[in-house]
Design a protein around this nucleic acid. Structure first.
Length: 491
RNA sequence: GGUCGGUUGGCCGAGUGGCUAGGCCCUGGUCUGCAAAACCAGUUACGGCGGUUCGAAUCCGCCACCGACCUCCA
């Protein structure tokens, strides 16, 4: 009943019921980061989207092998140093070994993903560690006659491919349209057609990252790594391939073409694409230079930021939009997410204090069904979250006595919310900065002040009362008079 | 130019042919010595023009605007 997940398949442009190729097992491949720059807000979208998918599939009882690559070779840079590997360029700029740069940004990526509570994939292979596998694919495609060698480089013959298969199937492109729109790129003259893409590229003399091959000293084409690594770890045919919409063409299209020839089958059954985060209505991206790094976001150290935003705020912000919609960044939107998340988590934490009644006034199963229905509908996290806010309302009503839950229902409600909030959405409660976490001395001092204030209050000595509150606030300690006594917290 | 997608209230963002997600903001209320917080309640919307329909924000057509991809990008 809970196993009727449907996902939007880019290949068919429809929502399809998810059925794994091998019962109880799911193979998931997602295009990971290119590690030549600090991770930015844009990187969080696929990471969190597919983290949600990973978590939910596991919740449903599937054994999931999630492969997310690290791109540390290839990807030509398109500027004055045309044809030069991005990573090599950056490395020389900073006088570092290429692999040193790669290691640094890989570590940074991992650090920030941990903070965002993104679970580690099952396997995180590096392109540079799979040169042999990539060369095997090049050879295979050459042998089958769908590639040609030209001046030490090897190109995929798209026209030949298209005569038998459909090139453009995923992105809805037609070959004749592509003819007129491809612009001048390095190596264009070596190609038979402008839309052919490189499987192996001969390295220019100054190119540092290079590997020997029978064609030339060079490096693999920029789509090949995913074909090689997905096939190696998930098989030639696997369940789900994910990535950002910006990779749809040409990256994923080329991947399909390569794999189809090399393995004689289309690699993935379902293709999922997350949309972009926009800023002022425009895609946030490396090339536009309008990105905000995660470090800047978490520290608030950026001119566009009015404040710092916690990793959980970012996570919640992303989950509040459906993954296939664009999500517009703004301080206002992030602050709204921050407050909403706080309300959700505060209320969730109050659950433990509740006591059960003899009977229930609300149907827990109804809430559960609605939440699962939302998830099953192409991972509709915003709808799921809207139902969780219904749960917040219920918790508040339970506290005020306007609603009741039996012990069975209450326990079920608690474990259900833990499952949804913590395990599936991956929202972790912020460190509880209540008195319990502070040292005894501070607790004692605060207790003393609170008691003094209480005495002043009893004497209607409002001046002393307010002085204690105001001056503590100036130091950074906030007092709140609640019904159950005085609470304090460090701001 | 080609392909694809979008246009929802002050902001972010869901969605279905009729029963007006949700969050934030705002307003009112409860609580409070005051305040804050918290809680409760409430308001505002579907780019424009036609069409289909008993009924459309939801389907169709045209127009306008915005964006993505076509080059590395999550």
């Amino acid at each position: 009943m809970q196993n009727t997940l449907s996902i939007y398949n880019t290949l068919t442009r429809t929502k399809e019921t998810f059925k794994p190729l091998h019962q109880d097992h799911v193979g998931l491949y997602v295009c990971g980061p290119t590690v030549y720059g600090d991770p930015h807000l844009g990187h969080t979208r696929p990471a969190i989207t597919f983290d949600l998918l990973f978590r939910y599939l596991k919740h449903q009882g599937y054994k999931v092998r999630y492969v997310r690559n690290i791109t540390d070779v290839g990807h030509l840079e398109n500027d004055a140093d045309q044809g030069e590997d991005k990573i090599a360029k950056k490395a020389r700029l900073e006088q570092l070994e290429p692999m040193e740069v790669v290691q640094h940004y890989t570590d940074r990526y991992h650090q920030f993903m941990d903070e965002l509570n993104v679970q580690k994939p099952s396997i995180e292979p590096r392109a540079s560690g799979h040169i042999i596998e990539q060369l095997q694919i090049v050879e295979s495609i050459l042998n089958k006659g769908y590639a040609y060698e030209s001046n030490g480089s090897v190109y995929f013959d798209v026209e030949k491919y298209n005569s038998t298969y459909k090139y453009g199937e995923l992105s809805g492109r037609k070959l004749e349209d592509l003819l007129s729109t491809t612009r001048e790129l390095d190596g264009q003259s070596e190609k038979r057609n402008s839309f052919d893409f490189a499987l192996w590229k001969k390295a220019a003399p100054e190119h540092i990252m290079r590997w020997p091959s029978k064609y030339s000293d060079g490096f693999p084409g920029w789509h090949l790594e995913c074909s090689a690594m997905s096939a190696k770890y998930l098989g030639e045919e696997f369940d789900i391939h994910g990535g950002g919409m910006d990779l749809l063409f040409p990256h994923h299209e080329c991947e399909i073409a390569q794999s189809t020839i090399a393995n004689e089958k289309s690699p993935a059954k379902y293709w999922m694409h997350n949309n972009m985060i926009t800023i002022n209505g425009q895609k946030m991206g490396k090339s536009l230079g309008n990105f905000i790094t995660l470090e800047e976001l978490f520290t608030g150290n950026h001119e566009a930021l009015e404040q710092a935003y916690s990793p959980m705020t970012i996570r919640f912000f992303i989950l509040q939009a459906h993954y296939r919609s664009t999500l517009d960044f703004s301080n206002e939107a992030l602050q709204a997410a921050e407050k909403g998340l706080k309300r959700l988590m505060d209320s969730y934490q109050k659950l433990d204090k509740l006591t059960a009644s003899k009977e229930s006034s609300h149907n827990i199963q109804e809430i559960k069904d609605k939440c699962f229905a939302a998830l099953n509908d192409d991972l509709n996290s915003p709808i799921l979250i809207s139902h969780l806010f219904e749960a917040v309302k219920l918790i508040n009503n339970l506290i005020s006595g306007d609603a009741k839950l039996s012990e069975t229902d209450l326990n079920e409600f608690k474990s259900f919310l833990t499952e949804m909030i913590e395990n599936i959405l991956g929202l972790s409660a912020p460190a509880n900065d209540n008195t319990s976490d502070h040292n005894e001395v501070l607790n004692g001092a605060l207790e003393l002040l609170i008691n003094l204030r209480r005495d002043a209050k009893a004497n209607k000595d409002w001046a002393t009362c307010d002085k204690i509150r105001d001056e503590l606030k100036a130091i950074g300690i906030e007092l709140k008079d609640t019904k159950d006594g005085v609470e304090w917290s460090i701001k």
